[in-house]
């Protein structure tokens, strides 16, 4: 190996590179032109040219030049956009890693679910014996309604409001609102607020429509007891 002979370093050229890389010799202290001048004089002195030796010198010299030029250049300042880009990138990869975690957990949970799929416990007993519309026939509703009409007719202080049109649509909306606001509403309550027979009938039709649309469920706790309404 070609031996360099500088003030700061004397020895094999490749050792110099090694020391610079290890930062034991400062690249600023090394004059590359001095090295090349010296090498050129060396080349002139020798009689047979060893190509391997020559190319090894070139490689090491090139690396030294690269290291030195890098050290001499001012550090390029990152512009804001680049910084921002880097941030979004790291933010993205952080999010992705985070999301990946949940995907892993999902796999585990899927297995848990499968393991538990076929374990059965005591079936829910119907604590409240609800008879819903399947057993609560239209007839039951009509019977209940006719009771209400009968009561209404017996009232003496009935105010007949004439000319006022009660739209079925409005009534549907009104009942739907009452039922959806509370858990259970008495069947009779819907009609208690009606002021005419016409309104009673419209209310009944609206209720039937809501039941048909499955917006409202009618049920009773036992046969012949009060009918209750709840939003379905």
């Amino acid at each position: 190996m070609y031996q360099v002979n500088l003030n700061v370093f004397k020895g094999p050229f490749d050792l110099l590179l090694y020391l610079i890389k290890k930062q034991e010799v400062d690249i600023y202290d090394i004059s590359i032109s001095e090295i090349t001048d010296e090498y050129l004089t060396h080349l002139n002195k020798i009689e047979t040219l060893d190509l391997n030796e020559l190319s090894r010198f070139l490689v090491i010299a090139a690396i030294l030049i690269q290291i030195k030029s890098k050290a001499l250049l001012p550090e390029k300042e990152k512009n804001e956009l680049e910084i921002e880009e880097e941030e979004t990138e790291s933010e993205l990869s952080r999010k992705l890693a985070n999301y990946k975690k949940y995907q892993e957990i999902t796999k585990i949970l899927e297995q848990y679910k499968e393991d538990n799929e076929e374990i059965y416990t005591k079936l829910h007993q119907e604590e409240e014996k609800e008879l819903d519309l399947e057993s609560l026939k239209l007839k039951d509703l009509i019977v209940a309604f006719s009771e209400i009409i009968k009561e209404f007719s017996q009232k003496e202080d009935v105010l007949e409001v004439r000319g006022e049109e009660i739209s079925l649509l409005d009534k549907i909306e009104e009942i739907n609102e009452i039922v959806s606001k509370r858990e259970n509403v008495r069947f009779s309550e819907i009609f208690a607020r009606c002021r005419s027979k016409m309104e009673l009938i419209v209310a009944f039709l609206a209720l039937l429509e809501l039941i048909r649309r499955k917006k409202v469920r009618a049920f009773q706790k036992e046969h012949f007891s009060e009918i209750w309404l709840s939003s379905a």
């Binding site: 799929e117 076929e118 374990i119 059965y120």
Partner: peptide, 26 residues
């Protein structure tokens, strides 16, 4: 709680005509 062993679950399900448990998507 007392429960059925998983290996007999499908018998229980068929006998009581229980719906399959809800499948959840990924």
């Amino acid at each position: 709680q007392v429960a059925t062993k998983p290996q007999y679950g499908k018998w229980v399900r068929n006998f009581f005509r229980l719906p399959k448990k809800i499948k959840l998507t990924k």
